[in-house]
Structure formats: C-alpha cells, structure tokens
Design a protein around this nucleic acid. Structure first.
Lengths: 148, 148
DNA sequence: CTGATAGGTCAACGTTATTGACGTACTCTA
DNA sequence: TAGAGTACGTCAATAACGTTGACCTATCAG
C-alpha cells in the first residue's frame, strides 16, 4: 500500500493527531471539570455563541448525538443561567437557544485558552504553518467519512 | 486579547480541529465497532505494534488511564488472540506485550484506513501542507498542557 | 528478611452515550 | 377543521468506559 518510509511518516502523523488533540483539549477540560461540566457543554456554548438563536434540532445535527444525550447538558447550562431556551416567534414548536452574559464569559474563558495555545503553536511552527494546517483540517472535514 | 479578525480566524481553527478529528476517527471507529472494540483497543494495538515488548506500566503512562481501565481492553485483546502477554525474562514482575499476526492484521486494517485518508488529505491540501501540519501538531504535543 | 515495585482484581460508582417508546404542543394541508 | 406531520421532551433500560479505593500476589533489590 505504502512504501516503508512513507508508512513511517504517516504513522507518525497519526500519533501526532492523537497526542495533539489531547494536548489541545486538556486545557478547557480542566477548566470545565472545576464547574462539573464536560466537553458537550463546551460545544453547546461554542455553537450557540456562534449561531445565536440556534434551534435544538440544528444543534443535534451539528453535534451528531441523540436528543436524549443532548437534553442533560442543555438543562445543566440553562439551570446555571448560561443559556436561555425560548420558543421561536413564528414557529412555536422550535426552541431557540441563546447565550447569556454568563455563558459568554465562560465560553470566552475556555476559548481564550485554546486560542492562545493555537496562536502560540502556529507561531512556533513557522511561516505559513497556520494556513497549511487549516487547509489540511478543512480537507478532512470535507471528507465523506465525517459522520455528520 | 485578540483583535476581532484574529479571533475569527482562531475560532475557525478551533472548529476545524473538532470536525477534523471527528472525521479522522470516524473510519476506524466504525471498523472497531463491528468487532465490539473501541478506541482504547486501537491505541493499545498501535503502541504495542510500534514498541514491541511494551510493558503494562509504560502503556499506562502513554495512555494516561488507570490500570483498572486498561485491564479490560488488554484482556479482550489477549482473549481474541491479538496480543500476547508474557513476563519479562530478566524481571519477571514486568509483563511484556507483543502483537500477534492477527493483531497486526487488524491494526494494519485500521491504520491503513487512516493513512490513506491522511495521505489523500495532505495531497489535497497542497505542497508543504504535510510538513507544516506536522510541525503544528508536534509543537502542540510539546506543550506543557499535555496531561501525559 | 524486609521494603519497594509491577501488576491483577474486586467492588462501588459516575458520566456519557445509546435505543425504544411514548407524550405534548404546534403547524400545515387537504 | 380534522388529521398528518414536525419539533421537542421525557421515562426507562442498557452499555461502554472511565474513576477511586482497597487489597492481593509475585518478584526483585539491598
């Protein structure tokens, strides 16, 4: 399939992905754990902040989990005053999620940590590394193997 | 902290990481699920293949989980004939893990899928993308936030 | 012989996810 | 306006995978 040298390189890349992702998530994971929250809470905050007024269904599609799995974290965030759930004005079956000031603050704390880490990392990796890294990740996202 | 344009870029990079990693792991996850195995089994096979004769303790350090958590997947792999556990010749307290032909075959199947995906992706992302991507990931691994 | 090391194992528990079934509120269409 | 479809909530059972804590055996080193 691949010659031995190429295989060595690609295997090294696979390991890099594993360890790199772990290093990347370690930071916010610790901050979240202090509040009794997990990665799903972080993701919800991220996507609700990005798309204010996101519906439950749209969030379900993005995250690729079941509504039962989403229910708890959503309720946690609501009861902690980090998001607000309100029916859509036009179609009252649809629930729209909005981030509160508190939610925005927590999201900023988590995201700042990751942004600083990425910014430093891109700088250390040299000229053009950021664009190339993004290009690889974008190409991966576009791949049909993504379960979304 | 960051100016708005920079923040937009870094937030996009964070999302890329999330979706990219998911696309990357989706393929082997499906193959593993067919055999009733999970990511931990894959990781064990990967590291035992790479470092033949790896000890339990060394594997524990790499994976960053408890011995109780490692115990099941190790036993699963052994009972399915994918790895062999044997005491070290010099220090019989130490158990050395070895991959079998069957284990090597499964590992190859999983890894081939990921190698092909990465190879395609690097090619699509253009000249120099692979080296730059690796540089970013290596820099991330070297970061003290890695819990290992 | 003694203390340290490597590892195995039992038990209880927690988190996060799943599938399946069913209920409620609401909208849209014939 | 009745009935079908949609969006979402929720109960229940189950599973995968991890944790902490405690305790055990086997082995090695001084």
């Amino acid at each position: 399939m691949f010659d031995p040298n190429r295989e060595r390189e690609l295997r090294a890349a696979i390991e890099d992905f594993f360890f790199g992702y772990r290093a990347f998530t370690a930071l916010p994971d610790r901050l979240l754990a202090e509040r009794g929250l997990g990665r799903t809470h972080h993701r919800i905050l991220h996507f609700v902040r990005r798309d204010d007024g996101l519906s439950i269904g749209a969030l379900l599609d993005i995250l690729g989990i079941t509504k039962q799995a989403l229910h708890r974290p959503i309720k946690d965030l609501e009861s902690q005053g980090l998001i607000v759930i309100a029916p859509d004005a036009a179609d009252r079956r649809v629930r729209r999620l909005t981030i509160t000031d508190g939610g925005r603050a927590l999201e900023a704390e988590l995201t700042d940590a990751q942004m600083r880490l990425l910014d430093d990392t891109f700088r250390q990796a040299g000229e053009g590394a950021e664009a190339a890294w993004r290009a690889v990740m974008d190409s991966l996202r576009a791949n049909p193997s993504d379960p979304r």
